[in-house]
């Protein structure tokens, strides 16, 4: 299967761009509620059965990018009683992020439909 190379030059507007797997799963993880970086990484690796690897660089690279595109935003640290929680930065999905996620899922649904029709599934 040829891999589609996302056109990164256009992605600053982030409106119609195909989301990369890492971005998609990061948004998906945050769709469940605000979370901090490492928890996002673990959630993504767990839900994808470690197919999508989220090392430190990939994780914060994605956060950096998604935040820059306005799809996620830093949020207040919830009142967590564990001592180190205060040092962690939490992120939430922005409305734009939720919309991008919905668009992406809709796109994937169309792909699945198409594939179903072509492959006779």
């Amino acid at each position: 299967m040829p891999r589609s190379v996302p056109d990164r030059s256009a992605s600053s507007s982030a409106s119609d761009a195909v989301l990369s797997p890492v971005a998609l799963h990061t948004l998906l993880a945050l769709a469940a509620g605000p979370s901090h970086g490492y928890a996002i990484a673990q959630e993504v690796e767990d839900t994808t059965n470690h197919r999508v690897r989220m090392g430190p660089g990939t994780l914060y690279g994605a956060i950096h990018r998604l935040a820059g595109q306005g799809l996620i935003a830093e949020t207040e640290t919830p009142d967590d009683d564990s001592a180190h929680a205060s040092r962690r930065r939490y992120y939430r999905l922005t409305p734009a992020g939720a919309a991008a996620l919905r668009r992406e899922v809709a796109r994937l649904e169309r792909v699945v439909d198409l594939a179903g029709a072509r492959l006779g599934l």
Partner: peptide
Amino acid sequence: IYLAADFLTSLVAVHAHDP
């Protein structure tokens, strides 16, 4: 291996997106 792969791919990706 995991960290090396992560570092290299993200290094390129982050630089490519650095405004």
